[in-house]
Design a protein around this nucleic acid. Structure first.
Length: 423
RNA sequence: AGAGGAGUGGCAGAGUGGUCGAUUGCGGCGGUCUUGAAAACCGUUGUACCGCGAGGUACCGGGGGUUCGAAUCCCUCCUCCUCUGCCA
């Protein structure tokens, strides 16, 4: 969430940023924030003053008791009754103001970076670059949901029997392709100096709040109610929360982590014509990269992560393009997001396979993720993450783009991982 | 899962109702001494909020309660350890 002091000091800039997102009622909400913060401050100041008085009286009573002056002590006690009531009132007032302020801040999205184009929807995203040749396929080309049946490598019906729609079963070369991609992605990340982690894939409420899935997106996560745990929608949640309530020393930055996890999304009400086959699933595999950086270095890191992901797509020989998301299409918590899309030659459309974002202090403020530099001052770090990569759509694109009448050719870089070259 | 024990500052470890944000040791930082280092000695050493400042307030696993006053008493939750059971 945004820092109140930042809103105070940069009111016009914050307002302009929210307008770039087409965020409604921005000005009045920002004014409310400042007003609630003022309320919070004044109730706390009052509370602290009275508390100080009460503490003084208590000390006095302690001394009187020690000296055996029981009567005077009793007299002093009488005065505290009123103070107690006042403290209770101011306490309530203060915590109410704090809660209201927090609730309000939760509804305000991050401020877009100056380079973010204004715009309302995906159509206004800026195409930063396109790379690779869109393949010219033979006449009998098929979308991946046909190919997987033809070669018997992914079985949706079996998944329905075992679990339900959106939980495919990968078989034979299909399963081996999954495993190969995961290993390839992890090995590449290790070469790029990311430290591998294997986090839990169920997380508690605090973690959900830490990265912002709660309270807004509660309905998007599977909830194990018996234990009040959530299945992760992305490894971003457990990996970034590793650093919740942590103060690192400046020389430990940047922190670079990579993790492979399955991801679970309920995707309630989001099924339609474009989500056939592997395009949208309830469970899928993803390798995620996360960085925690010094505030001065986060945009450099973002560019590094972007070119890193581009490198993966190039090695997989997939035609892709990079989009800079516009204000209206960007995620709630992000300051700048690049989407990577691969071209799916049989569906004849672009598929999002990665999203790389800088959250600046928006997440770290909630997480209380700080660093301490030479000057001994603690300040919020910046957090970033990106998919590197999400498997299903990569699999879809590999299958579709490389299909021939003789079979499906596997990208060269995967051969040693796969143990075969064709499906 | 059952029985018992325990959670205190970076770490170790005192503190069982009063001036305790908390004795002490180690570590860290600064200094004295030294050609340099070690040793020794001296000083310093958390986080957050409010305040221009002086300063104030909160934090002893989390939450709640008793009390004029809670690290200390009560309730509850969490975590760890030991024993028993179960298990990949």
């Amino acid at each position: 969430m945004l820092l109140v002091n930042h809103i105070r000091d940069n009111f016009e800039a914050v307002l302009a940023g929210l307008n770039k997102r087409n965020f409604p009622n921005a000005e009045s909400l920002l004014n409310q924030v400042i007003q609630l913060d003022d309320q919070r401050k004044s109730s706390q100041t009052q509370r602290d003053q009275i508390q100080a008085e009460s503490n003084a009286i208590s000390k006095q009573i302690g001394m009187l008791m020690k000296e055996g002056k029981r009567d005077e002590a009793e007299k002093a006690k009488a005065r505290t009754a009123e103070i107690k009531v006042q403290i209770k009132e101011l306490d309530d007032e203060n915590s109410r103001a704090e809660e209201d302020l927090k609730a309000l801040l939760y509804t305000i999205p991050n401020i877009p970076h100056t380079s973010v184009p204004s715009g309302k929807s995906a159509e206004d995203n800026e195409v930063v670059l396109e790379h690779g040749k869109i393949p010219n396929l033979y006449d009998g080309k098929q979308p991946h949901w046909e190919l997987i049946k033809k070669y018997d490598i992914i079985d949706f019906d079996l998944g329905v029997k075992i679990t339900g729609a959106g939980f495919p079963v990968y078989k034979g070369k299909g399963a081996r392709l999954q495993r190969a991609l995961i290993n390839f992605f992890l090995d590449e990340a290790l070469k790029a100096d990311f430290m591998e982690v294997q986090p839990p894939i169920l997380v508690n409420e605090d973690s959900g709040y830490g990265t912002g899935q709660l309270p807004d997106k509660e309905g998007q996560m599977y909830h194990a109610t018996a234990d009040n745990l959530y299945l992760i929608p992305t490894a971003e949640v457990p990996i970034t929360n590793l650093y919740r309530d942590v103060i690192v020393s400046e020389d430990q930055l940047p922190i670079k982590n990579v993790g492979y996890t399955p991801c679970f999304r309920r995707e309630a009400g989001s099924w339609g014509a474009h989500v056939r086959g592997l395009n949208r699933l309830h469970q899928f595999d993803k390798v995620e990269i996360v960085q925690i950086t010094h505030p001065d270095k986060s945009y450099e890191a973002l560019e590094d992560m972007r070119s890193y992901v581009q490198g993966l797509l190039q090695k997989l020989e997939l035609p892709y393009r990079v989009l800079r998301l516009c204000g209206g299409d960007m995620g709630f918590t992000s300051a700048l997001t690049y989407d990577m899309e691969v071209y799916s030659a049989a569906q004849e459309r672009w598929l999002e396979v990665s999203s790389v974002s800088n959250f600046e202090t928006y997440q770290t403020n909630r997480l209380k993720l700080r660093f301490k530099g030479e000057d001994k001052k603690t300040q919020l770090a910046h957090s970033l993450n990106g998919s590197a990569l999400a498997l299903p759509r990569i699999v879809a694109a590999i299958l579709e783009n490389n299909q021939t009448e003789e079979g499906i050719k596997m990208p060269k870089v995967l051969h040693s991982y796969l143990g075969f070259e064709m499906i």
